[in-house]
Amino acid sequence: MIKVLKISAEGLPLYNGKCEINFINTQRTTSNDTEGMFKLSSSNANRLYTNNIESFFGINASGKTTILRLISFVFSVLNNEQINNIKYCGILGEGNEQNEIVFNIVFVNCNTVNLLHTVIKYADERYTIIEEYIKSRKLLASDNKTSIFDFSSATTIMKRKDDEQYLVDDMSIIVGYKKAEKTTIVFTDMFEITNINRFKLLKEYPLSVLSYFDSKIEYINTSEINGKTVIYLKFRGEKEKILYDLAELNTYLSSGTIKGINVFGRAISLFETGGYLIIDDLENHFNHEIVSTLIRFFTDKRVNPHGATLIFSTHYSELLEHIKRNDCIYIVENKDKITITPLNERMQRNDENKVQSFKSGLIGNTAPSYEAYIQLKKSIINKVETKP
């Protein structure tokens, strides 16, 4: 299975310069400091890991959702989707036919480390790939956080050609690589439940998940009858309810319960295989303990043996106290354009108080300014006092 190590993008109109998202450990790691990480190589000499948590923190309108959509876009490209059909292709920018967007995506598959280089251009109201290649080399026991991204001696194993009639002009050559290597990438983004929780169909609804969110639920089952989904919901001590529309569940279940069943159901599926779960505003409809439970599950090697990765955004610095490492936390800021900064570039020690630093604004524009607070207060007072 493909595991992404780094996403690098240049030319995106919403970002300030190059946007880089690193999925490996960039801080020093010892054998006793690997909680919440997945080892890339079985070699004892190799100390490279991927983080099982990638979090993006910032104030409202800082660009957190845009960052997650960029990640989802890249995963969709790796999943053989045509660029113009990807729901978040708008992050590439429209109307600027002079601009080229360059992606460099580094990933590991089996015992090889690979670079997918893709150049995208907008013309005639659609996106096309104008240049693309894949370089590959062996993953070495001596690889470190710097050399892992060195492809100077790598072999170009695939290259896009103008005469390739079988490949549409907005689909990556990764489709050929995956077919040859018999590999895949697994991911789920949950943007659609950020603000409005709708029940999503799953293969099964484990009783342990149902009970965690609502102890009164005895079971939820579904079946297909004449091409339509029928839902069977039963609470303890009550008769079974038969529903013919998923939206009807909103009458019987809270928003938090629906979101919890959706999120934890997807997470359990990924724990079995590995992959990525993307959630915007993780704290929405969840209390603190539920969020911390989800984070603990992703960082627990027994629960998550295949290194599934939780990628989320949040407004609340308190959630970050459950993340021990600084190299998997990104500060998102928007000063005309979006910038992201790894927390370990501003806080060297993992044991420093993240919550206090965020709240005080010591590590960037991560809290509303005092001036904005005063202006808001004055505006409210003025409105209240002038009301007849």
Rank of each mutant, 00 (worst) to 15 (best):
F312Q: 03
S215H: 03
G256K: 03
E192W: 00
I101N: 10
K377D: 13
E20S: 09
F213N: 07
L246V: 15
L78D: 05
K159T: 13
T26P: 07
F358T: 09
I374C: 12
K383T: 09
K377E: 14
T341P: 10
I338Q: 01
F199I: 10
K259T: 00
G11P: 00
V108D: 02
T29A: 08
K18T: 10
D300Y: 09
F107W: 05
R302S: 12
S8I: 03
I323E: 02
E318D: 10
S62A: 15
K239G: 15
T155W: 03
E385M: 14
V168I: 13
F297C: 12
L210K: 00
I329E: 07
N262G: 02
K18P: 00
I134A: 01
Y15T: 07
I53A: 07
N99S: 15
R69S: 09
K178T: 13
F56G: 05
I173Q: 05
Y373A: 14
I329G: 08
S142R: 04
S55V: 12
S41E: 02
N114R: 08
L140I: 07
V175E: 13
S76D: 08
D336M: 09
Y49V: 12
G307D: 00
N85C: 02
F191H: 11
S215W: 00
D280M: 00
D327F: 01
S8E: 11
E283A: 01
N16R: 06
E125W: 04
V77A: 03
N221I: 06
V77G: 05
R349G: 02
I220L: 13
N334G: 03
Y127M: 04
Y252E: 10
E125Q: 12
K87D: 11
R266L: 08
H285Y: 15
F187L: 07
S62V: 11
T229A: 12
G274P: 02
D300T: 13
K159V: 09
T183Y: 03
E218P: 08
Y276I: 10
I295L: 14
G307W: 02
E20R: 01
S42C: 01
F286S: 03
Y232D: 12
I134V: 10
D214T: 10
N79R: 05
